[in-house]
Simulated scan of single mutants.
Amino acid sequence: MAATGRILDERPRIAGAGEARMLVETVLESLAALAHLVGEETELVRAGRLPEAMTREPRKTELAGIYMRGVEQVKLNAVALARFAPEQVKRLKEAHHAFQGLIETNQIVLATARAVSESMIRDLAADANRPMRANGYGPTATVGAGVFARPNSGPLVVSRRL
């Protein structure tokens, strides 16, 4: 995975088969590293290990940038790549397509985690704001008629590890 560390800032023009293969292989390596990291993040979120999943964000951003720069180079050299390395281009397209599926799964898992979190917060807020009345009090009570208990103002506990 040494190529994933290469920053693809230059925009060289591909002049031969060796350069074409090297460019595609470099982009494939960065895509593989990014896919691995996104897969890890997805599994961590699925397991409810959100803080650990969040630690992957800086590296994911870095790998995504490397991959996108590589894709730009591939676009700039599309004609040469099709001529010099058609099989590698086919592999790159297949890998990119598989990565799109992985991203869709990741987005579904993240959306589910977000929905569950929002639901928990809504339920917690509803419980915290629900007035608590003793059965012996209130307009329909026979003992202490007209006296209401204070709304539930007890302590609120929230776990930051969810």
Rank of each mutant, 00 (worst) to 15 (best):
L8I: 03
V27A: 07
G5E: 13
P131R: 14
A115S: 13
E10W: 01
G101E: 09
N106G: 11
V74S: 04
S30P: 00
A20W: 01
V38W: 02
Q73L: 05
L81F: 05
R46W: 02
A134S: 14
Y137A: 09
A113R: 14
A35K: 08
K60F: 01
V79A: 10
N135A: 14
K90S: 08
A82Q: 13
P51H: 07
A15C: 04
F99K: 02
A3P: 00
V109S: 03
N135L: 14
A80R: 05
P86R: 02
S117K: 12
R6I: 09
T26P: 03
A95S: 11
H96A: 12
L8Q: 06
G18H: 03
V147C: 02
I121A: 15
E25R: 10
Q107C: 04
A111K: 14
Q73T: 00
E118P: 08
R69Y: 00
F148Q: 13
V27G: 06
T112P: 01
P51K: 08
V143N: 13
T112E: 14
A125W: 07
L81T: 00
A113I: 13
R56C: 11
V71F: 04
D127H: 15
R160D: 11
V45K: 06
A126P: 00
S153H: 14
I108A: 10
E41Y: 01
G16C: 15
M132Q: 14
H96E: 10
R56L: 13
R122L: 12
E10H: 04
A85T: 03
R6K: 10
G154V: 03
R69S: 01
A111N: 11
L44E: 08
E43C: 01
E25A: 11
E104I: 07
V74R: 06
E104K: 10
V24Y: 03
A78P: 00
D123N: 15
R46S: 08
L81V: 00
